[in-house]
Amino acid sequence: GTLHLNGVTVKVPSLEKAIKAAKKFAKKYNLEVQVHGNTVHVH
């Protein structure tokens, strides 16, 4: 999967790991997580 954090793109081995990391990051910075196919966006 691919993880987008505020314009930074990170390749992640699995989508589940990407979503987990995204949710952790989003919670910390009070951001929103959106999943588009195998790409996770945090903004």
Rank of each mutant, 00 (worst) to 15 (best):
V35L: 05
S14T: 10
Y29S: 00
V12L: 14
K28Y: 08
P13R: 10
K17Q: 12
T2H: 11
V40Q: 04
I19L: 09
K24L: 08
K27W: 05
E16Y: 08
K11R: 12
T39V: 13
G37V: 07
A26T: 02
N6H: 13
H36E: 11
K20Q: 12
V42T: 03
H41S: 15
L3P: 03
K17G: 09
T2Q: 08
T39E: 14
T9R: 06
N30H: 11
F25P: 00
L3Y: 00
E16W: 10
K23Y: 10
G37M: 06
P13Y: 10
E16A: 12
G1W: 14
A21D: 06
K27F: 04
E32I: 14
G1D: 08
K27R: 08
L15T: 03
A18V: 06
K28H: 05
E32D: 09
F25I: 10
K20C: 15
H43P: 01
P13S: 14
N30G: 14
A18C: 14
T9Q: 09
A18Q: 00
T9D: 04
P13H: 12
F25M: 07
V40M: 05
K17V: 13
A26N: 02
K20N: 09
N6Y: 11
V35T: 02
V35F: 07
A22R: 00
N6L: 15
P13T: 12
V33F: 12
S14W: 11
V42S: 02
N38F: 12
T9M: 12
A21V: 12
L3C: 11
L15D: 00
E16C: 14
G7I: 08
V10T: 06
K11L: 13
V33Q: 02
K11A: 11
V40I: 14
H41K: 08
Y29G: 01
T9G: 04
K11Y: 14
H4T: 11
K23I: 13
Q34H: 15
L5K: 03
E16T: 09
E32P: 02
L5D: 02
A21I: 15
L5N: 01
A21L: 15
A21P: 00
V35S: 01
K24D: 09
H43V: 13
H41W: 15
K11Q: 10
H36M: 12
V12W: 13
V10H: 09
Y29L: 05
V33K: 00
Y29F: 09
V40G: 03
H4G: 03
T9V: 15
I19V: 07
K28C: 15
F25K: 03
K11G: 06
A22W: 10
E32N: 11
L31K: 02
G1S: 10
T39Q: 12
L3A: 02
K23C: 11
V35E: 03
V10F: 15
F25H: 04
H41V: 14
V33L: 07
L5M: 12
V10I: 15
V10M: 13
V8Y: 13
K24F: 10
V42I: 14
N38K: 04
E16M: 09
V8N: 06
Q34I: 14
K23Q: 12
I19S: 01
L3R: 01
T39W: 09
Y29D: 00
A22T: 02
F25V: 05
A21C: 15
G37T: 03
A22F: 10
V35R: 01
L3K: 02
A22D: 00
H4F: 10
V40C: 05
N6F: 15
H43C: 14
H41Q: 11
V8G: 04
K27P: 02
H4W: 11
I19R: 00
N38D: 08
T39F: 10
V33I: 14
V8I: 14
K24S: 06
A22N: 00
Q34E: 13
V33S: 00
A18N: 00
I19E: 01
A22C: 13
V35P: 03
L15W: 07
H36P: 02
T2S: 07
L5F: 15
V8M: 11
A18F: 07
P13W: 12
V35D: 01
N6E: 04
E16S: 10
Q34F: 14
N30D: 09
L31N: 02
N30V: 07
K28M: 07
A18Y: 05
E32F: 09
T39M: 10
L15G: 02
V8F: 13
V12F: 15
T9C: 15
K11I: 11
K17S: 10
V42F: 13
S14E: 04
H43L: 13
L15M: 08
V42A: 04
K27E: 11
K17L: 14
T9H: 10
E32Y: 09
S14M: 07
K27C: 07
P13I: 13
A26Q: 04
N38G: 05
Q34P: 01
K17D: 12
F25E: 00
L31G: 04
A22I: 15
V42R: 03
S14H: 08
K27I: 07
Q34C: 14
V8R: 07
Q34A: 10
G1H: 11
K27D: 08
V42W: 05
N6I: 12
H4R: 06
P13V: 13
F25N: 01
N6R: 04
K20V: 08
V42N: 03
G1E: 10
A22P: 00
K17F: 13
I19W: 05
H36G: 03
Y29Q: 02
N38P: 05
S14F: 08
V12A: 05
V35K: 04
L5R: 02
K28A: 05
L31C: 09
L3S: 01
P13F: 09
H43E: 05
Y29W: 10
L15H: 01
N30K: 08
A18R: 01
T39P: 03
K27V: 05
K27S: 07
K20S: 08
K24I: 09
H41F: 14
L31I: 07
N30I: 06
E16F: 05
T39I: 13
L5Q: 03
G7H: 11
A18G: 03
K23E: 10
P13G: 12
K28E: 05
E16R: 10
K23W: 09
T9I: 15
N30S: 06
V33Y: 06
A21S: 06
E16K: 11
I19M: 06
H4D: 05
K24G: 03
G1M: 11
G7R: 06
K28I: 07
K20F: 04
G37A: 05
H36Y: 10
Q34W: 14
T9Y: 13
T2F: 15
V12D: 01
G37I: 07
V8T: 08
H41L: 13
V12H: 08
T2K: 08
L3G: 02
T9P: 07
H41R: 10
A26L: 09
E32V: 14
H43F: 14
V12S: 03
F25C: 11
V40S: 02
H36W: 07
V40Y: 01
A26W: 09
K17E: 13
K24R: 12
K24W: 12
G1L: 10
K20R: 10
A21G: 02
N6P: 11
N6W: 15
G7Q: 05
V42K: 03
S14K: 04
L5W: 15
H36N: 10
A26E: 01
K24V: 06
N38L: 07
V10Y: 15
H36V: 14
A26G: 04
V40R: 00
K28L: 10
V10A: 04
H4P: 02
A26V: 04
H43Q: 08
P13L: 11
H4V: 15
V8A: 06
L3E: 01
V10E: 04
V42Q: 02
N38H: 07
A26K: 04
H41A: 11
K28G: 02
T9W: 13
N38Y: 09
N6A: 09
F25W: 13
S14G: 04
G7T: 09
I19Y: 05
L31Y: 06
G37P: 02
K17P: 03
T9L: 14
V8D: 03
L15P: 01
F25G: 01
H43T: 12
N6S: 08
A18P: 00
K24T: 05
E16L: 07
H43G: 11
V40P: 02
L3V: 08
K11V: 11
P13C: 14
V10C: 13
V12G: 03
G7C: 15
A26C: 07
H36K: 09
V12I: 08
V35I: 13
K27A: 11
H41T: 13
K23M: 13
H4I: 15
T2W: 15
T2D: 05
T39A: 10
N38M: 10
G7F: 10
L15A: 02
G7D: 05
G1N: 07
V12Q: 04
L31P: 00
K23H: 09
Q34V: 14
S14Y: 06
N38Q: 08
Q34Y: 14
V10G: 02
T39G: 03
G37W: 07
T2E: 08
P13E: 12
T9E: 09
V10D: 02
T2N: 06
I19T: 03
V40E: 01
K23S: 04
V42E: 01
K28F: 08
K23F: 08
V12N: 02
K11H: 12
Y29A: 03
I19A: 00
